[in-house]
C-alpha cells in the first residue's frame, strides 16, 4: 500500500474519533448515516483548525439544488451522486490529491 492509507468509519461518531486521532487528507462522507449525519459531521470537521482546507466529498442520493446549497453552506468541497462507481470515486481522488 505504497503511501496511501484508507480508513473506514461506519457512521459519523466513529468518523469523528478517527479524524481527531489521525490527520486525514481526503474525506468522503455519506449524507445519510445513523447517529451523526453527514452534514452535521462536515460542519464539525470544518470547525477543526487542522481541517480548514480539507477536501470533503459528500455522497448523496439526490443532487437537487437545495441539497447542493445546504452542502456548500456546511462546507462540502464537492459531491458524488449515487449510485457511485469506482470510476467516479477515482476521478474525485485525482482531482483533490
Amino acid at each position: 500500500m505504497d503511501g496511501d492509507d484508507i480508513l473506514d468509519a461506519p457512521e459519523g461518531k466513529t468518523a469523528l474519533e478517527i479524524l481527531n486521532k489521525e490527520t486525514i487528507d481526503l474525506l468522503f462522507v455519506d449524507w445519510n448515516m445513523p447517529k451523526l449525519n453527514g452534514l452535521d459531521l462536515v460542519k464539525i470537521v470544518r470547525k477543526m483548525e487542522k481541517y480548514k482546507d480539507l477536501p470533503i466529498i459528500m455522497v448523496t442520493s439526490e443532487a437537487a439544488r437545495y441539497n447542493v446549497l445546504e452542502a456548500i453552506k456546511a462546507g462540502v468541497t464537492d459531491y458524488i451522486v449515487k449510485p457511485i462507481t469506482g470510476m467516479t470515486v477515482m476521478e474525485k481522488i485525482k482531482a483533490y490529491m
Binding site: D4, D5, D8, A9, G12, E22, L27, F28, D30
Partner: peptide, 10 residues
C-alpha cells in the same frame, strides 16, 4: 495520504 470513508457507501 490518508483517506477516510464514512457511511454505507464506504
Amino acid at each position: 495520504y490518508k483517506w477516510l470513508f464514512t457511511g454505507f457507501a464506504a
